[in-house]
Each structure stands twice: as C-alpha cells, then as structure tokens.
C-alpha cells in the first residue's frame, strides 16, 4: 500500500554457508574515525602514537580512532590488538552500530554488494543489516545478553529479528547452536543469569551466530574467564571458524588469543593503526617500535 511499508530489500540473505564465495571480501573499512567532542583542525596532528595521546591539546576532543582501514575476507579472521585507549573496541562498536563514527566508510558484501557505505545508511537500514548479517560478542555478558529471558530465548531473539516465524524451527536452531557451544538442551530454557561466565560467553557466541551472519565481531571475548575456561571457548571458536565461513574480527589485548584465532593482525595505539600484517609476522618480526614493545613484553 504505502511506500513506508516496503523496507529496503537490497540485503542478500545467505541461507547456506557453502554459497559464500570464499575469495570475496566480506567486510571493508576505510578511514574510520570516531571521536568524542566536536573536533578541530589540529585534532589529527596533535593526537596519535607519536604524541602518546588520544586527546587533542587544542580543543580537548578525544580522537578514539582515526585513519583505520582494513578488509576481511569471508572465512578469515582479523585480530586487532592494543592496550587501553588504542581504539580497538571503538572500531567494533562503530561497525556494529553501537557508536556513530565521525567519518569513514564500511561496506559489507551482503549489503548492496559492498557498493554502499553502511555508516551513511538510515538507522532503519543499519538495524536491518545488523539483525540479518552481523553478530557481536561483548566483553561482558550483560551487554550482549538479555539475562532475564532463557538462553534459548536469547538465541531465538536474533532469529526473530531476522524474521524467522516458526517456533519449531527457531527452537531447533537455538538448541543446535547451544549444543555446539556445549550447553546441554536441558539448560536451554534457563536464563543465563544462572550460568557461569564461560557459559554466558558461549551463549553470546551462539547468539552471534544464530542468523548465519557474514561478519562476527568479538570484543575481548575471553577477558575475565579462567584460563581453562578460556581454552574451551577458544576451541569452540576455532571449530566455528572452520565450519561457518564467517569473516571475524577479534579484538583482544591478549596476544595468545590473537595468535590462536587470527591469521592477520592489526596493532593499534592511541587510536591509530601502527602496523598490520600476518599474525606470525607481527609476532616474530615486528617492525614498529610499539609492536616490538608489545611483543617483547609478553612471554607469548
């Protein structure tokens, strides 16, 4: 009837992992900038790793990240490593839509075949892309889960947002994903507030994968978990990398996690990318002074 009723249909939905062309770039980001404050002409020059600060000395604006560019192919995993203030989490939040960037472009192969900038799309379109084609695992389960509804309900919510409309199918997929995350079906109807930290993260991962997204973002997914529990979560993610064909971006301050999960890595400091390359090269032949410092500081 009315034009408002028709939502944009340019999003291509992937029903099966195998249909993805593994050679395609799934996610491309160019010149991403995010800031807190109105900004001024000096912000770029006065901030960054050479100045060891994110704060512009002239106007007080915090440049959370700037000049960030990267591309991730389907089935590949990019790591972003850095310390506090590096901007790594900001990058993820901008991609997922939790934060509005000041500039830059992001394109997804599944949105307008990568020809359109997600950052300039309407909020309605961004939400649709996020619901159908992206997944995010937050550092804290409370940010990524609804602790008051069941674990299965948390996974179901993503499916429902992606317009699944059969309870039996929703329940089957939710149960299947939770089982793969080693959460027994008997606990599917329990709210995750009753779960351990590791289990909560696994519910988040199941939720992030529910709608078969093209891109999954993982933000410090193992922080706060015991080492043995971390191992279990990482092992599951490794398995998923192999089978799901999603493009992943893993943010971590832990080089061990990066080494395990990511073939390629970007190193960030004070909001800028200082080095990027193959993970083994970054860790064994670091070039930038900061990367060398980072790598030598850890007995990885």
């Amino acid at each position: 009837m009315s034009a408002i009723a028709t939502l944009p249909t340019e999003i291509v939905r992937h029903d099966h992992v195998a249909s993805r062309n593994a050679e395609q770039i799934a996610l491309k980001v160019e010149n991403l900038e995010a800031r807190y404050g109105r900004g001024c002409s000096a912000c770029h020059e006065l901030t960054g790793p050479e100045h060891s600060t994110n704060v512009c000395g002239q106007c007080g604006t915090v440049i959370a990240c700037a000049d960030v560019s990267f591309a991730v192919r389907a089935g590949r995993t990019l790591g972003i490593v850095g310390e506090s203030g590096s901007g790594k989490t900001t990058v993820l939040r901008c991609l997922y839509g939790d934060l509005n960037p000041a500039g830059g472009t992001a394109s997804l192969m599944t949105y307008e075949e990568g020809r359109a900038n997600l950052f300039t799309a309407s909020a309605q379109v961004r939400r649709r892309v996020r619901n159908f084609d992206m997944g995010m695992v937050y550092q804290h389960a409370r940010d990524g889960l609804n602790l008051r509804i069941s674990a299965g309900g948390n996974v179901a919510e993503r499916l429902l947002a992606a317009e699944w409309r059969r309870v039996d199918q929703i329940r089957a997929r939710a149960g299947h994903l939770l089982e793969r995350m080693e959460i027994p079906r008997s606990r599917m109807d329990t709210p995750p507030s009753a779960f351990s930290g590791g289990m909560q993260q696994r519910v988040q991962i199941a939720r992030a994968l529910a709608n078969g997204p093209a891109v999954v973002l993982l933000d410090e997914m193992t922080s706060g978990l015991d080492v043995s529990v971390q191992a279990g979560v990482l092992d599951l993610v490794l398995e998923l990398q192999r089978t799901e064909g999603v493009a992943m971006v893993v943010v971590s301050h832990d080089l061990g996690v990066i080494r395990l999960l990511c073939e390629r890595t970007m190193v960030m400091k004070n909001g800028r990318v200082v080095e990027s390359g193959l993970t083994d090269q970054i860790l064994e032949d670091p070039r930038h002074p900061y990367t060398q410092l980072l790598v030598s500081s850890v007995n990885a």
């Binding site: 909020a123 069941s150 993503r158 309870v167």
Partner: peptide, 22 residues
C-alpha cells in the same frame, strides 16, 4: 521509540516465543 523507528521488534517477538515455550 527507537525500536519503532528501526522496526527492531525482536524483543516483543521473543516475549511471545517465551510464552509459547512456557
């Protein structure tokens, strides 16, 4: 208001889903 603006209705749907499950 944001949920209506973005047609982000997953949460009301999940309330119905939980209703059916329970």
């Amino acid at each position: 208001r944001r949920m209506h603006a973005e047609a982000d209705y997953g949460r009301i749907w999940v309330a119905l889903y939980e209703d059916v499950v329970q």
